[in-house]
């Protein structure tokens, strides 16, 4: 039951997107988000959406994953659309009593929807194709300059990595403790809310104790291997930018240029 909770949404694969350097992926996803907001008309935004589609096609992920990531934010999309349709003022297309819908409102609503969908789908693609560990690793490297202003970048990312690493372990532990308490007749299924909450105590306390014990042991084990923080630390897996990373960067840059050109010289219809 607990095993069904998949943490992160990493979807194993070996596509070109999977193999991109996590740092490059992080930078490109930020660039992509900026690009979505730079686009100010339907045509330029469609270029952005097209880029998203190409990325997904290259990642060889099942298309239903796109739907899966958009589903939870569907209410937000609908809410935004409705707000924009009714409250953006402009030349009315349709009027009935106090309700008026303008052409500009409809257009804004459409653009906003496309933008949000691309935004979510794009950032989900990042987590679909990058393991959490690679992601924290990439983040650490990118945030390295912050060390200059005394931000403990390495420590933060080490904490994230350890937390991620121990989620499955703790799930395992929880199941063991649950089985042990059930063997002593603990009843976790019946009863009202308060009784159910009380039934959690025999599970949570041993879980806490074991989490602290593990933390202690891990700290000791790390110290035994002379861990002393990030300074002078080398890595087993060196991140290296390769041809495909520059290719991806070039692709996004071209998309960016295309959108700016479209903004400047494209047809004047469907603009905000």
């Amino acid at each position: 039951m607990l095993k069904d909770i998949t943490f992160g949404q990493y979807f194993p694969g070996d596509s070109i997107i999977h193999r991109l350097d996590p740092r490059m992926k992080l930078i490109l996803i930020v660039a992509y988000i900026v690009l979505l907001f730079v686009a100010d008309g339907l045509f330029s935004l469609l270029i952005g959406a097209g880029m998203g589609v190409i990325f997904y096609a290259l990642s060889k992920l099942p298309w239903k994953l796109v739907i899966k990531c958009i589903k939870p934010i569907m209410p937000i999309i609908i809410f935004t659309a409705v707000l924009n349709v009714f409250f953006v003022e402009g030349e009315p297309l349709f009027e009935w009593k106090f309700i008026s819908i303008s052409e500009k409102g409809v257009l804004t609503a459409m653009l906003m929807c496309i933008r949000i969908i691309c935004l979510i789908a794009g950032s989900s693609l990042l987590t679909y194709t990058t393991t959490p560990i690679a992601l924290t690793d990439g983040l650490e490297r990118l945030m390295k300059p912050l060390q200059k202003i005394k931000v403990p970048v390495h420590e933060l990312s080490m904490m994230m990595t350890i937390a991620l690493r121990f989620i499955p372990t703790l799930i395992d532990e929880t199941q063991k403790i649950m089985a042990a308490q059930k063997a002593r007749g603990a009843d976790m299924e019946s009863g009202n809310v308060i009784e159910k909450a009380k039934a959690l105590i025999p599970i949570l306390i041993p879980l806490f104790v074991s989490a602290f014990r593990r933390a202690d042991e891990l700290a000791l084990a790390m110290e035994c291997r002379c861990y002393h923080g990030g300074e002078g630390r080398t890595r087993m897996k060196q991140l290296k930018l390769s041809g495909k990373d520059f290719g991806a960067a070039l692709f996004v840059t071209l998309g960016f240029a295309a959108i700016i050109l479209m903004n400047m010289f494209g047809p004047e219809v469907f603009r905000l």
Partner: peptide, 24 residues
């Protein structure tokens, strides 16, 4: 009795912990 059963102890006193099963 599971492996490493001491990891399932949770009560304040030994008495209460042993009583968990019979109470249930």
């Amino acid at each position: 009795v599971f492996q490493y059963p001491e990891h399932q102890l949770f009560e304040e006193t030994v008495r209460k912990d042993i009583a968990f099963g019979p109470k249930n």
